[in-house]
Design a protein around this nucleic acid. Sequence first.
DNA 1: GCCGTTTTCGGCCCGACTGTTTTCAGTCG
Length: 572
Amino acid sequence: MRNRELASIFERIADALEFKGENVFKINAYRKVARVLSDMAEDIETVWKEKRLQSIPGIGEGIAKKIDEFLTTGKMKKYEEAMGGVPEDILSLMDVSSIGPKTLRIAYDKLGVRTREDFVKVLEDGSLASLQGMGEKKVQNIKKGLEIYERGHERISIGEAFPLVEEIISSLKKRFPTTRFTPCGSLRRMKETIGDIDITADSKEAKKVVDAFISMESVSEVLGAGETKASVLTPVGKRSLQVDLRVVPEDCYGSCIQYFTGSKAHNIHLRTLAMKKGLKISEYGVFKDEKKIAGRSEEMVYGTLGLPWIPPEIREDSGEIEAALEGALPELIGYSDIKGDLHIHSNYSDGASSIYEIAKKAKEFRYEYICITDHSQKARYAGGLSPSKLAERNKECERVEKEVGLRIFKGIELELTPEGPDYPEEILQELDLITLAIHQRKKDYDFTSDAISAFPYIHIFAHPTGRLISGREEYKIDLKTIFKEAARNNIILEINGYPDRLDLSDINSREAKKYGVKFSICSDAHNKDKLSQTRFGIGVARRGWVEKSDVINALPLEEFEKWLREGRKRDD
DNA sequence: GCCGTTTTCGGCCCGACTGTTTTCAGTCG
């Protein structure tokens, strides 16, 4: 998958051209294609091989040629040409908040700035501030931008961002009980990582809400505040996260949350559609000439364009608008469709909660069943269960099942071993459900055939790529082969809700669906309070266009048991 | 550089905030 690589090349070209003061629309064309590429579910190499490059919106003759050149030769003349004469440091400074191409251009031309050190120097010695159009405050803002950038500009996981936003909103709700607050942006779209948080509120007393927002306890710094909007920083661990609030009147709440939910690509596509109908969309509503014709609700905004409401998770301009126009939107798996969690660790292995506590909590979620999947014996580091300990745990499952009145399946998270199953056949027989997982790291070792060789004795393949969002790369595995074999052998692929995993990803899930793969969406909880993590997995699944009928643990108990008995019948 | 039921040329999403200005440019989302 070279989509991201190409996207960053086009992004860099855009940066360089912007610095050089090229035509703004040409620059935007490069930015657009970069965005399209990084959001695209399909592998650009496949599209290229099938000579369909120009069927992708944003790719015309010129950019198609450049992609062709890059995929053929590994180089792109335009890239080298654009980068020529632009110092690397200058380009990277463009990622800093408050520093734009115009500022850098002036510093480059008038003060001879070529490196980051040069730039810091002209900030400090006052020479930048003395230039026409610059000033002391501007310099202060740039310094602040640099500080924030250096403190770490990486995104935080949705698992960290979610509780934070819930806390902010509930504190504002206390003061403004009748005001609606909606978190928008990538959080509402359930992206796996969040760059910043956008909250929209409706109120007639905008200034009061803004004031309450910037004086919250959790605010470490106010970046800006006006009559209707404000930006603040709030600490998250060692870093800090930007939170933006906008307050609008009730009659444009819908268009406002629509606008700030994005994605940018989705909105641009919508506006183009509106333009063709002689309409204009902004965050304040849909307008025909000067007359406002919608804005109160998102449904009305989409309605004026002849579209049904589109779920936020798929607003990426990756085919959802076309599908909506054709009346062919998918029926996405819903947040309350999951009937049971099939990946939970108890305190028999490396979990923190007892099976009883987990079962009680699961009842609160209105689950009809759960499966306890402690680690198998080979996973010593995670308290892997010896055969006798496993037998003891199984008895505990049966006891709690009766006591709590919740169906509890006896499961295992089975380590992959090249020699075969981690337990003898008779022990596996005593289990209801077997989930395969790979936790080992062998450099350059391809796990594809090992995983497939385990398929005859497993039901589910958990976190199939092994990636950790915070850093660890996925292990080597050929996903296309896995998808094909999983579909053929009725092996369920897991969409793991653990925020640092979210594996399969949205892109991989959407790809897997094309092969006819079915999914289980689970929490991978290590204590009872983490059962709610499943919602992040559902978010990923929705982003991957996964439908309710694709999800095995959306089945009610009786049908799920039937599937366990019959659905898993093998050819052999 | 892309794109087309207004166009193969001439458009290209749009508004708030900030700071430096005295009517606006730059930056951001």
